[in-house]
Design a binder for these strands. Structure first.
Length: 466
RNA sequence: GGCGACGUGGCCAAGUGGCAAGGCAAGGGUCUGCAAAACCCUCAUCAUGGGUUCAAAUCCCAUCGUCGCCUCCA
């Protein structure tokens, strides 16, 4: 069975076929680095991380490119406000975002190109577009001529006639068509600038992505992704530029994720309603955020609230419960239990793959993983040994890993405390044997306050970090 | 005004023609000194109104509601 994925261009699910067999060229629009990254940015990164991981699970070699826009008006404005060098400002946020992604267990992209590293190619492309009549210089700017592009609007499903140019911004009367967009922008004194045939300036927002695609993936790519707020104008313009220049179809599949919303509104820098990735990770595990995103369709909007984060925290604990070690004194599960476990393993992998093949239906896939957890726990409760649980637990680890979940219980760097915890457990065991329950409960409660949970089972007391 | 998406139990959410996955919460039970975890049981006819069909949450029409894009935006 093949993978199906929804493409914004055709507005339907399509069979996934790559240009080169077994290889995927995937470009994902990254961020403009002028501000701390928020969990909305994390969403796109997580969505495409899961897509990439699943494609690799399916045997594809994925060349994953995610760019950084490191020069633009917003960066310059903010640098001016802060009185710092715009390049240094961008560099700092790039480092921070990469650290955020690492903290979220997002695999590093194959390449992270930056707009400022592509200037030569950008200029060549603009020259090519001018030669072909798709662009025209105006003073020291260069604009793309939308009227020359017959299928302009095909991605976003708009026609030029329908668009109320200037409805919310002032029309630049110098342009041939109000919808013409900048390929090259003249710079003001003191702003970052590069030499060009049209004078000192910098690239427009859209052309950089076209250039990075061309440079790192080629004229034609398999998947082009990003948030659905980029469909228009950014991706529309990218198609227009690239296809006008090459005369070939640019991306086979356009994949867009829905927006993360906070209190009913899109989370965005301009609205000021954001939760930074750092804020989130200070209170919750990376797995929790990933679960939130996996648990709903990637194309749907996702409403963020304390309540659903709390639910995600619990759900992760539930998945972790499937990985608990067998009781030391386990007697072994019955043949029937082991058969059930075996059946569920087959059902889980099959269901997982069928769900994920269907446009990366991770919520459906999670359903099968929870069912596996239940059957593992049943066997666990029936006395399965470590060896009996291992195959199912390995499967659980493997498939949650495909989704990028870590399910780690222990906190890094805390190994040193383990002997002391064990000492307290042994002490408490003695107190309980003497029925000194007040003291034994005191130990349990105090450890809980410190984030260590004790659980008394048949085979002794086990513990885990909260 | 134009384009588009969505509306499934208290909450999140899958399912897009054939008896409504899963998670969280809640209630009951087993286990336990107690607790926690785990296990067992209970918990929805799918916004509303029409229509098509042997059969609809799933297709069509209408209504109501929520949201996104059209401007920088993941």
């Amino acid at each position: 069975m093949s993978i199906k994925l929804y493409s914004t261009l055709s507005r339907r699910k399509e069979d996934f076929e790559t240009i080169e067999p077994g290889k995927v060229r995937m470009y994902v629009c990254g961020v403009t680095v002028y501000h701390k990254a928020h969990i909305g940015h994390a969403m796109f990164a997580l969505v495409f991380d899961v897509i990439r991981r699943y494609l690799e699970y399916r045997g594809y070699a994925v060349r994953h490119v995610m760019n950084f826009t490191d020069v633009d008006d917003k960066i310059i404005n903010r640098a001016n406000q802060l009185g710092v060098n715009p390049f240094e400002l961008a560099e700092g946020y790039i480092r921070e975002f990469q650290q955020n992604l690492a903290d979220l267990n997002v695999l590093p992209a194959t390449i992270n190109p930056r707009a400022t590293q592509e200037i030569d190619l950008i200029i060549k492309m603009i020259e090519g577009l001018i030669e072909k009549g798709f662009a025209y210089p105006l003073d020291s700017d260069v604009y793309f001529r939308v009227d020359k592009d017959p299928d302009y609007g095909k991605l976003s499903g708009r026609r030029l006639d329908d668009m109320q140019a200037g409805a919310r911004i002032d029309v630049d009367n110098r342009k041939e068509n109000p919808m013409d967009f900048a390929l090259w922008k003249a710079s003001k004194p003191g702003e970052p600038a590069w030499d060009s045939p049209w004078g000192q300036g910098r690239p427009g927002w859209h052309i950089e992505c076209s250039a990075m695609n061309l440079n790192h993936l080629g004229e034609q790519i398999d998947i082009h992704g990003g948030g659905n707020d980029l469909i228009f104008p950014h991706h529309e313009n990218e198609i227009a530029q690239t296809e006008s220049l090459t005369g070939k179809q640019f991306a086979r599949y356009w994949v867009h994720n829905g927006m993360l919303q906070l209190s009913g509104e899109k989370m965005s820098k301009s609205l000021g309603n954001l939760v930074s990735i750092d804020d989130f990770l200070a209170k919750h595990k990376a797995d929790s955020l990933r679960f939130l995103i996996l648990n709903s369709g990637y194309r749907n909007p996702l409403s963020y609230s304390d309540e659903i984060v709390e639910q995600a925290d619990r759900a992760i604990e539930r998945l972790q419960s499937g990985l608990r070690p067998a009781e030391a004194a386990a007697a072994g599960a019955s043949t029937q239990d082991l058969e059930d476990l075996q059946k569920q393993m087959v059902a889980t992998r099959t269901g997982f793959e069928q769900s994920m093949d269907d446009d990366f239906n991770s919520a459906g896939a999670l359903g099968y993983l929870f069912e596996l957890v239940r059957v593992i726990n049943q066997a666990h409760a029936e006395g399965a040994t470590a060896a009996q649980l291992a195959p199912a637990q390995d499967l659980l680890k493997e498939l949650t890993g495909v989704l990028g979940l870590q399910l780690e219980n222990s906190r890094a760097g805390d190994q040193a405390v383990e002997p002391f915890i064990q000492l307290l457990i042994d002490l408490r065991l003695e107190l309980r044997a003497q029925k000194l329950y007040q003291l034994s409960d005191l130990i349990r409660n105090r450890l809980l306050d410190m984030g260590v949970i004790l659980e008394d089972g048949k085979g002794g007391t086990s513990w885990r970090f909260k």
